[in-house]
Amino acid sequence: MSTTETLPETLPPPSAVTPARDFISRIARQAGLLGVIVVLGLGFGIARPLFLDGGNMLNVLLQASVVGILALGQTYVLLTGGIDLSIGSVVAVAAVCSGLMSHTLPAGIAVLGAIAVGALCGLANGVLITITRITPFIITLGTMGIFAGLALIIAGGQAVYGIPTGFADLLAGGVVGIPIPVLLFILLTVGSALVLKFTTFGEYLTAIGGNSEVARLAGISVGRNTAMAYVVAGATAGLAGAVLTARLGAADPTLGGDLLLTAIAATVMGGTKLAGGEASMVGAAFGAVLIATLTAGLTTLNVQAFYQQVAVGGAIILALVIDQLTKRRRA
C-alpha cells in the first residue's frame, strides 16, 4: 500500500504546538507571578520605604519558607490527583517530636528524626490510600484528626519548651546572612523542580495524575509511586515542623491548621491542577512568596489582621480568575 504514504495527515494548528510556544506559555505563568510579587513589593516599598530594606525582604522570605516547603510537598501529592489534608497536623506531630528529641539527642539527629516522623505519617497516608482505595480526601481528613490528636498526646497537652540553643541555631541561624530556612526552601524548590522534570518518579507521578489507568496498563506501579508522593509530602511537613520549633523556641502541638490551606493556596496559584497531571514546583514556591509578601506588606501598612485574611483570600481567587481568562483567550 505505497499509495498511503503520500496521504497528508491533518496537523493541529501549528501555533498551538511549537515546543517554543509551549515552553513560553508554561513559564509565562511563573514569570507573571514573579511580576506580581515585584509590583506588590515595589508598591509596598513606595508606601513604606523600609519594606524594601534587605533585612525586611529576607524576613518576608523567611515567613514564606515554612508555607513554601509545605506547598512543595503538597505539589507532589496534587500532581497524582490526590490531596493531603493532614500535612498541617503532621507539622504539629513533627514539631513536638523534634522538640522532645532535642532535649536529649544531638540537634542534627532531632531534625532528621522530625523528617522521619513526618515521612512515617506520610507513609501511613499513602499505604491506607493505596490499600483501601478510599479517596485521598477522606483518608487524609481522618488522619488529619488522628495526627492532631497524637501531637497533643505526645506533648501531654501543652507546648514543649526548653528547646536547646544548638537546635535553634541549626535551623534558625543563617549562612552568609541568609536564614537557613530560606536556604532550605530554595534548595527544595530547585531540587523538586528537577525531580519533576528529570526523574522517572516525576514522570510517573505526572502519568498517574494524568490518567492512572493508562499508567497501570503501561506497567507503572501506581500504588508504590502514589504512596511515595505522600511520603515526600510527609517528610517536607516534618522538616517544616522542625523549622517552626527552632524559630519559635517551642513546639506547639496545636500548630498547623492555617498552614494547610495556605500551602494548598500557594500550590494552586502556582499553576498546579487539583485534578492532577499538571504541576509546577517553582510556581508553588512563588505562590508562597506572593502570599507572604502580601501579608507582610499589609502588616507594614498597619492593616488589621482580619482585613489581611480577606485580602489574601481575594488574591488567591483573583490569581485563578486571571489564569482562566488568559487561557480562554489563548484557546
Partner: peptide, 20 residues
Amino acid sequence: KNQSLVLGMTTASNTTLMRP
C-alpha cells in the same frame, strides 16, 4: 484516549512511558 495515552503529556513521554 482513556486507556493508552496520558493526553496532557508530550508525545515523547507517552512513547517512552513504560521505560523512560
